[in-house]
């Protein structure tokens, strides 16, 4: 609680600066984690197109480079649309140690 602001320090009118979603770790909501198998990937980028949270990382050259777990909610759309089954959905419990 101590890190939360008091009423005198909050902006008025329920406002927050826009673009704050960039700071919100929606990845905390995830119960299933997509794991990318780079060897199988053909870089078709269907996962990048379909991801609702901009969590598929891609290079300017159009190559998939990984998954942004800070935002990824684990919805599994990427795994479902992957034509090469190159993304596995795994329970977060397997990654507790990390």
């Amino acid at each position: 609680m101590s890190s939360l602001k008091g009423w005198k320090d909050l902006p008025l009118a329920t406002t927050v600066p826009a673009s704050t979603s960039e700071e919100v770790q929606t990845g905390q909501w995830r119960s299933m984690r997509p794991v990318w198998n780079e060897a199988e990937c053909i870089h078709c980028l269907q996962c990048w197109v379909q991801c609702p949270d901009n969590s598929i990382k891609a290079s300017p050259e159009g190559k998939m480079t990984g998954i942004e777990y800070f935002f990824c909610k684990g919805c599994g759309i990427c795994a479902a649309v992957c034509p090469k089954k190159a993304i596995d959905m795994r329970p977060e419990s397997e990654f507790i140690e990390q």
């Binding site: 602001k5 008091g6 909050l10 329920t14 406002t15 927050v16 826009a18 704050t20």
Partner: peptide
């Protein structure tokens, strides 16, 4: 700015 964000037990009272 964004108006009307969710504020639960953390900020509604303030």
């Amino acid at each position: 700015v964004a108006y009307g964000s969710l504020a639960l037990t953390d900020y509604y009272f303030e």
